[in-house]
């Protein structure tokens, strides 16, 4: 349904979806898979980082939660930036965020998104940053 207007489909692009809340990570995976993305789930920063490093041909985009134990979404994005500065990151949170949150300067965070908007806005954002 959300895809109704924006879907040209994911075209098999590789997405890393990070959320410490497993149901939400799985939701992201399922939801984006329906839109023809190839989604890998991670349930924490450390796991996401190792998946990111180990991925043979990398990821096209990362969607990550902000508030996670151990490593925040922004810290994670900073790590990704060191490894692969071009990979776009979309930051999700239960809070309203701006593009000026602390630590965002050295990341490739392209957009911030309130979690309740994920289902509606994420497809559009993916299209925009995967073009």
């Amino acid at each position: 349904m959300c895809a109704e207007f924006f879907t040209a489909g994911g075209g098999g692009k590789k997405i890393l979806y990070v959320d410490d809340e497993e149901s939400l990570a799985l939701l992201g995976e399922e939801f984006l898979s329906d839109l023809n993305y190839r989604v890998t789930c991670a349930f924490g920063g450390e796991q996401a980082l190792s998946l990111f490093r180990d991925a043979e041909d990398g990821f096209d985009l990362v969607v990550t939660d902000l508030t996670m134990p151990g490593m925040s979404g922004i810290q994670l994005a900073q790590e990704f930036y060191r490894i692969s500065p071009e990979t776009p990151v979309i930051l999700c949170s239960g809070h309203l965020l701006t593009m000026e949150e602390e630590g965002m300067a050295k990341t490739n965070i392209k957009a911030v998104l309130i979690k309740t908007d994920v289902c509606v806005k994420l497809p559009m954002l993916l299209e925009k940053y995967l073009c």
């Binding site: 809340e21 149901s23 939400l24 939701l27 809070h95």
Partner: peptide, 24 residues
């Protein structure tokens, strides 16, 4: 309120997301 809202958003995200997929 901010604390509750944050947690609530996570819950709502689940509801919205899964309901949307079920709907299809």
């Amino acid at each position: 309120a901010g604390g509750i809202a944050h947690d609530f958003n996570n819950i709502l995200a689940s509801i919205l997301g899964y309901a949307a997929m079920l709907e299809k």
